[in-house]
């Protein structure tokens, strides 16, 4: 496990900062252009959801360096309103903000591993991971 680096999400342009940091880490550990774009897009989705629904939160990155594989893990944490029905928000097209509703199911497809925990009124924590191929 490598060091954690975090970006606070408070305003819209923090999304760009988070994306930048994630992309830099991804490039450094050897992800190709397509995966870098996937990772940056996933970060954008998670960070924007924080900005839109929880107002503030954090995105943290960790480099995973095992004997046989390397990867990047990201955690998006907020203490916003939380999500009542997780299976509903994971459906393509479900949105409470008039969006495409493609963000969360999209992140799941963009990454190799995806895990979401949320409690109404407490907040949301989403982990996503991608391995270098």
């Amino acid at each position: 496990m490598g060091l954690q680096s975090c970006v606070n999400i408070n305003k819209e342009w923090d999304i760009v900062g988070a994306r930048q940091m994630g992309r830099d880490i991804a490039r450094e550990i050897g992800f190709g252009t397509v995966d870098q774009a996937r990772i940056a897009t996933a970060i954008s989705e998670l960070a924007r959801n924080i900005y839109l629904y929880a107002e503030t939160g954090q995105i943290c990155f960790e480099v995973i360096d095992n004997i046989n594989q390397k990867g990047i893990s990201m955690i998006a944490i907020d203490s916003g309103p939380g999500i009542r029905d997780i299976s509903q928000v994971m459906e393509d097209g479900f949105s409470t903000s008039g969006g495409l509703g493609a963000g969360l199911p999209g992140v799941k497809r963009l990454m190799d591993d995806f895990d979401i925990k949320s409690e109404e009124g407490k907040g949301t924590e989403i982990r996503a991971l991608k391995w270098v191929r």
Binding site: V34, Q36, A37, T41, A102, G106, R109, L110
Partner: peptide, 13 residues
């Protein structure tokens, strides 16, 4: 760009 095309497809857009 090719990588953008792929992420758009992954997002299911």
């Amino acid at each position: 760009r090719p990588e953008i095309a792929q992420t758009i497809v992954n997002l299911g857009i």
